[in-house]
Simulated assay, not measured.
Amino acid sequence: MIVRIMGEGQVRLADSHLTELDALDDELLAEMENGDGPGFRRTLQALLTQVRARGEPLPDDSLEPSELILPSPDATLEEVRALLGDDGLIPGGG
């Protein structure tokens, strides 16, 4: 799966990592619904850290279509809310 982190670039991420990322996505969604700004910021950073740690960066000139687009690390709660689908940032999750 190709994942784009807005403002950073793309990484190739094995589908096997989606379960752990989905758990963070669920947590992020709950924090957003509760208006928990500090929790949201902490979980967003954890989600992006996991993607960076588990993914293989693609070259900057790579033109792969992104299957998943994640917000930049400094995105606000309101900006992320605008990106959300019905089931969070990661479609098809629990």
Rank of each mutant, 00 (worst) to 15 (best):
I5A: 02
T76I: 05
L29T: 08
I5R: 05
A23K: 06
G88V: 00
E56P: 01
G7W: 02
D15A: 12
E33G: 14
E67M: 11
A75I: 02
E78W: 10
L84W: 10
G94Q: 14
G93Y: 04
G85P: 09
I90P: 00
A46P: 03
D26F: 03
L77Q: 13
I5D: 01
T43G: 08
E79A: 09
A14D: 13
E56T: 15
L44A: 04
E64N: 03
D60S: 15
G9N: 05
G37N: 13
S16P: 09
G9F: 04
R12I: 00
R81H: 07
P38L: 05
L47E: 06
G9W: 09
D22A: 13
G35F: 10
L21R: 00
D61Q: 07
V80K: 02
F40I: 06
L47M: 12
Q45E: 07
P38M: 06
P65T: 04
R12A: 08
P91H: 00
Q45C: 06
E33C: 12
D22W: 13
L89R: 07
T49S: 10
E31D: 15
R4K: 13
D36V: 01
L29E: 08
L28D: 04
T49R: 08
L70V: 15
Q10K: 14
P38K: 12
Q45G: 06
D22L: 13
L89F: 04
V51A: 07
G88D: 06
Q45F: 05
Q50Y: 06
V51T: 04
S66M: 08
H17Y: 13
L70E: 09
V11Y: 12
L24Y: 01
M1F: 10
T76V: 05
Q50M: 11
T76W: 03
D22V: 14
L58C: 12
R4N: 09
V11L: 12
G39N: 07
P57R: 02
E64S: 03
P91E: 01
E33S: 14
V11T: 03
A53C: 02
R54N: 11
F40P: 05
G35A: 11
P59Y: 10
P59V: 00
Q50V: 11
D60Q: 15
L21F: 09
E20D: 11
V51H: 01
D25L: 10
R12P: 00
H17F: 14
L89T: 01
R41D: 10
L89I: 04
V3H: 01
D26C: 11
R4I: 07
A14M: 07
G9Q: 06
T49E: 05
L83W: 08
D60L: 15
G35E: 09
L29M: 11
V3E: 06
L29I: 05
G93S: 15
L28W: 02
R81K: 09
